[in-house]
Computed example of a mutant assay.
Amino acid sequence: MSPLNTNDLQQIFDKLDQNGDGFVSLNEIKLLLERIGVQTSLDELESLVGKTSLDLLDFIFFYDTFVKRDQNETGKEDVNDLECDLSKAFKVYDLNGDGFISCEELQNVLSRLGLWNKHCGGDCKSMINMYDSNSDGKLDFEEFKNMMMATNS
Rank of each mutant, 00 (worst) to 15 (best):
80 N>Y: 10
71 Q>E: 13
123 D>Q: 04
82 L>G: 11
125 K>P: 04
34 E>C: 14
62 F>N: 00
99 G>I: 10
74 T>K: 11
35 R>G: 15
58 D>P: 05
57 L>F: 12
71 Q>A: 12
119 H>R: 13
65 T>H: 05
106 L>V: 01
56 L>F: 15
35 R>L: 14
143 E>W: 02
3 P>I: 15
42 L>V: 12
69 R>S: 15
30 K>L: 03
146 N>E: 04
76 K>S: 14
22 G>V: 08
61 F>I: 10
66 F>L: 08
20 G>C: 10
117 N>W: 05
117 N>A: 04
119 H>W: 09
138 K>A: 00
26 L>K: 02
133 S>I: 13
139 L>D: 00
32 L>M: 04
48 L>A: 15
152 N>I: 15
142 E>M: 12
2 S>Q: 12
57 L>E: 15
1 M>P: 11
110 L>Y: 03
38 V>C: 13
49 V>Y: 06
22 G>T: 08
21 D>V: 10
90 F>A: 09
80 N>H: 09
122 G>S: 07
110 L>G: 06
152 N>Q: 15
105 E>Y: 01
149 M>W: 01
29 I>C: 04
3 P>G: 13
147 M>V: 00
6 T>C: 14
112 R>C: 14
52 T>E: 13
129 N>R: 10
63 Y>I: 03
108 N>W: 02
